[in-house]
């Protein structure tokens, strides 16, 4: 895993995120039954250098991550999409907001089967916890 910090939702950050997921044995165990790609979508934040909404699409399968690609939101094909503004994703990446609590409080929007997502809540939390291991340069702090 690269020690260089990257801006979130960039190709370099996505690659480091994939590495972090692959290296996380807790996630691998908890996500053993998760077989669907997931896209995390960041709302547009022009003031922070994100003129349009952007997605990182993760090819997840039974605890593994076979790909992490930055896409325009129109190109997302994942059956599960979690969408939130920058401030919310920052809280999640820092481990200050559990993603399911974010969904419950309406801070994170969900597209896809909520019943399936909630059945695998620990897997979703473990996935987001992997982001904590990614050296991240938050644009509002630089």
């Amino acid at each position: 895993m690269s020690a260089v910090a990257h801006r979130p939702f960039t190709p370099e950050w996505a690659a480091a995120f994939q590495d972090a997921i692959e290296a996380d044995m807790t996630y691998r165990e908890l996500a053993a039954k998760w077989t669907w790609p997931v896209a995390l979508v960041l709302d547009a934040a022009p003031e922070l250098g994100y003129p349009d909404a952007v997605a990182v699409e993760l090819t997840l399968d039974r605890g593994r991550c076979h790909g992490a690609v930055i896409r325009h939101t129109d190109a997302v094909t994942a059956p599960f999409v979690l969408r939130a503004p920058y401030a919310t994703w920052k809280l999640v990446m820092r481990g200050e907001l559990d993603p399911l609590a974010g969904v419950t409080r309406g801070r994170i929007g969900v597209k896809g089967s909520l019943a399936t997502l909630m059945m695998h809540a620990r897997s979703a939390s473990a996935l987001c916890a992997c982001a904590r291991a990614v050296p991240t340069r938050f644009p509002d702090e630089s």
Binding site: L100, A115, M118
Partner: peptide
Amino acid sequence: SAYALAQYQ
């Protein structure tokens, strides 16, 4: 939320 989720599961 966690309790509701556990009940559902």
